[in-house]
Design a protein around this nucleic acid. Structure first.
Length: 840
DNA sequence: CGAGACCTAATTTTT
DNA sequence: TTAGGTCTCG
């Protein structure tokens, strides 16, 4: 959140002269690029460098095609990261560029970190000399700090995270006299993000969009928000992309500087770039032809089939269009997969082939063994049984010496996790949840950081607001309002206003003295900034402010964990030089590394699984409405469906050896039990690579009544009646869709229990293959998008005798629209949708 | 200001 | 179902 300009490196500090011609050796010419020198040495004079020997021919081509635009379509598990890192090492080793002349962008800090490490390994040492390897955002900050004044900022600007952003927007909505309930700040924040993802300034947004919020005042609010940011000397995440773009556009000389600087541009996960990132890259990549410059050396690596972030602005089109955008581009496909068995690859390839908008690829493996397991599809009665059965499977594997670390359960939506957590707790199986709220997003961490911010940055109004009454010190809305008024009247930050106010008679004695205590504390801490070590200061602040006491006195079950987190926070500060340095880090890296070594099964969403791999993967919940998710269908139409399918593809390709898919016939959604039908994706799997598991076990229950009962939605080879007969019938999903009801709920249970671990995030490697395909066509197709549950009143009456597939017979006890409360003879009282019961 | 009632909405997530 | 937010009362 806090920024500091002190480490703005000056340009070209390690470049003896502006442009080393290709092939010229930079090493030896003085200082800086020891890395290049070492890389050269590592190369050992042989005609072919050793690092190239580890590559297959396609990978090698991707590494050695250094000049001109290159698109590497790297299929899942084809060694994408290896190519990227080796390519950089190669560029350095052959003296084509200095480290500082290579721009390498990733999406996540983790990916950036990993690349740095791996380049370091290749080249012999940690890569400190790659100043321009980082996330889009971190590089954006770097550029923006250097040219802040061109964007109307001071280079010490603060970076707001989503939380700050929303609070700020809320204030603006209120200040404009709008009802912040009718026009939720959260929603508007998302709209702003959407605009910024497209690189649009307030005046550039579409009329329709602008009208969509707050009775047509969207544009006005957006502009007001930007104004407010400027006056706070703050930016949000979107600005880190948009402002550099604007600077480049408005200041050709600045852009030219970067053109001169970067000889090679590399982009990871290109399929995830949004429009703003695309523009940013184009600006940097397109050197004016007139200057007789060297060719445009941009290399984008990605996989159109793993594009799963369309909903947050990623444009698959960017990768699909690459050859048009960069004429003469070479496209290199990596299709040799080093991860999965032939069955898994076969299943995944067949599934993804149902998508139309793709460049196409064919993953293959040459390590196929005769005895490999096919992909297994399992049916279960309901989600509980699903969890129970997977739990059994996990234990069985465990007893066969499989490490839990090699297994993962990947779900479509996080509410699905709960049942698995419950199950693993009862079984005593260690598990770790990956994803979910991050360390730095936790309340106690954010509170603590707000204290640090206000101490290190006097003018950080948002931080001040956050802590003014945390812990409670009797400074509520009324007091805050007063402080605000003074601040506005005098044009000073809130903290200063508070100081002034505390010295006057304006306030009632109680709040006044509370305020005075607070400001005096802050003054004292500020004074300690340069006198104490920052970790010590941090502890002092948390102690003296009463913040730690607040949690010590809190008897809620989370309190001890929060105190633990605070300690962890202080511990992690030790890695930084100063409070400011730490805060700068935190604003960009909302992610704390964690390094639990216990053996545990991983539990996460499919989205968080991208880039990871496991020996054994369980994919539960393959049911229409849940996966593909109804909402993706409703909102995204055909392209929504295709993205869901890509998500399925990502899931399948995470598995190395064993892959289990599950669907349940009944699932509780929003507290209501609903019957479900198997996902269409199951029917899109190739018979040759798939086995339908013959569970036999608990499958059934009241279900006898169900087996053989006609599926009201259409047929699938996974319909219960046919599960064991392996019939291969083509589905009638369109019809099925029609009666689908909303699926999905959300829960973020705070499981307690010994062996649990929650991790910020993860990623490993991904990749791709080749093929062909048409591109356009994100048109909504009615038949796929049909909608949910009718709200018409139920045909049942109180006291009616009814039959339900899951619960058997019972009497209608209450009716609420189409929701029935039924007293079942055996199962007790349940709420179900009326469409799932019939007169008994 | 805080506790408890009441209402509402409910994928996916990085920076 | 349930979590989160808002609203009301003491």
């Amino acid at each position: 959140m806090s920024g500091f300009p002190d480490d703005i490196p000056f340009f070209d500090e390690d470049e003896p002269s502006a442009n080393p011609p290709a092939q010229q050796k930079p090493a030896g010419s003085g200082s800086g690029s020891g890395i290049a020198a070492r890389a050269m040495a590592a190369r050992g004079g042989a005609a072919s460098a050793r690092y190239l020997d580890a590559l297959n021919p396609e990978q090698r081509l991707a590494v050695e095609t250094t000049e001109g635009p290159v698109l590497v379509l790297a299929g899942a598990g084809t060694g994408k990261t290896r190519v990227l890192t080796t390519r950089i090492a190669h560029i350095l080793a052959t003296g084509r560029a200095y480290p500082s002349q290579i721009l390498a962008v990733t999406f996540t800090n983790k990916a950036a970190r990993e690349m740095k490490e791996r380049i370091g390994t290749l080249v012999g040492e940690a890569v400190e000399g790659m100043p321009w390897l980082g996330t889009f955002h971190s590089i954006g900050v770097k550029i923006l700090r250097r040219h802040a004044e061109l964007a109307g900022l001071k280079s010490s600007f603060t970076i707001l995270d989503t939380d700050d952003q929303i609070r700020l927007i809320k204030q603006i909505i209120q200040a404009e006299g709008l009802d912040d309930k009718r026009w939720p700040a959260r929603q508007f924040a998302q709209m702003i993000d959407g605009w910024k993802n497209k690189g649009l300034a307030p005046k550039e947004i579409a009329e329709g969009d602008a009208r969509a919020f707050a009775n047509g005042r969207g544009r006005e609010l957006y502009a007001a928000y930007q104004e407010r940011l400027k006056s706070l000397n703050a930016v949000d995440f979107g600005d880190l992309l948009c402002l550099p773009i604007r600077i480049f556009r408005d200041n050709p000389d600045v852009l030219a500087e970067y053109h001169r600087k970067f000889r090679y541009i590399l982009v990871d996960e290109y399929q995830d770039t949004n429009t703003a990132q695309y523009m940013w890259l184009r600006l940097l990549a397109q050197r004016p032809k007139s200057a007789g410059e060297a060719p445009l050396n941009i290399c984008c690596v990605g996989d159109d089939d793993q594009s799963i972030y369309g909903w947050r602005g990623a444009e698959v089109d960017n990768i699909l269009r690459f050859e048009k955008d960069f004429p003469g581009a070479k496209v290199i496909r990596l299709e040799r997969n080093y991860r999965s068995t032939a069955h898994i690859l076969g299943a995944a390839s067949h599934l993804i082939a149902h998508n139309e908008g793709r460049l196409g690829k064919t993953l293959f493996t040459d390590k196929a063994q005769p005895d490999e397991a096919k992909v297994k599809v399992h049916a279960s009665w309901d989600s509980e049984e699903e969890a129970r059965a997977i739990g059994e499977e996990v234990e069985a594997l465990q007893s066969k010496r499989h490490a839990l670390n090699d297994m993962a359960i990947l779900v479509r939506a996080s509410f699905q996790m709960r049942e698995f957590e419950d199950r693993f707790v009862t079984l005593g199986v260690n598990y770790r949840v990956i994803g979910g709220p991050r360390f730095y997003e936790r309340q106690e961490i954010r509170d603590a950081l707000a204290y640090f911010r206000i101490v290190s940055q006097e003018a950080d109004d948002l931080a001040f607001e956050r802590i003014i009454n945390v812990p409670k010190r009797g400074l509520g809305d009324a007091s805050l309002r007063q402080v605000h008024d003074v601040a506005r009247a005098r044009q000073v930050p809130l903290l200063q206003a508070a100081r002034d106010l505390a010295g006057t008679e304006e306030m009632k004695p109680k709040p006044r003295s509370a305020l005075r205590t607070l400001t005096e504390n802050i003054d004292r801490w500020q004074d300690l900034l340069d006198k104490t070590s920052h970790t010590e200061l941090a502890e002092t602040i948390l102690e003296e402010s009463g913040y730690t006491d607040m949690w010590k006195n809190d008897r809620s079950p989370e309190a001890p964990g929060r105190l633990e987190n605070l300690k962890e926070l202080i511990r992690s500060m030790e890695d930084y030089e100063s409070l400011r340095g730490f805060l700068e880090h935190v604003s960009l890296v909302m992610d704390a590394e964690r390094h639990e070594e216990m053996d545990a099964i991983s539990l996460m969403t499919l989205h968080s699984a991208k880039g990871l791999e496991f020996e054994t993967v369980f994919l539960p919940g393959w049911e229409e409405g849940l996966f593909p998710h109804q909402r993706a269908l409703d909102e995204g139409g055909r392209s929504g469906l295709e993205e869901e399918r890509r998500l399925a593809y990502v899931g399948l390709t995470r598995a190395k050896k064993n892959l289990h898919l599950w669907f349940a016939s009944n699932r509780r959604i929003h507290g209501l039990w609903q019957s479900t039908i198997p996902s269409r994706f199951l029917d899109e799997l190739p018979e040759a690579h798939v086995d339908v598991a013959d569970e036999g076990s608990s499958y059934g229950g009241y279900g006898q009544g169900h087996i053989g009962r006609p599926n009201p939605y259409g047929k699938s080879r996974f319909d219960n009646a046919e599960v064991f007969s392996n019939t291969y019938s083509t589905p009638g999903w369109q019809r099925a869709q029609k009666n689908r009801s909303d699926a999905t709920a959300r829960n973020w249970g705070t499981r307690s229990g010994h062996q649990v671990e929650r991790i910020g995030y993860g990623e490993t490697d991904s990749g791709y293959g080749a093929g062909r395909g048409s591109v356009k066509g994100r048109v909504i197709e009615g038949e796929l998008v049909a909608k949910s549950v009718s709200e018409s009143p139920s045909a049942f009456k109180l006291g009616d005798r009814v039959f339900h597939m899951k619960f058997g017979n019972g009497n209608v006890a209450a009716i609420d629209g189409n929701k029935l409360t039924i007293d079942f003879d055996k199962a007790g009282q349940k709420r179900v949708l009326d469409s799932f019961v019939q007169p008994a």
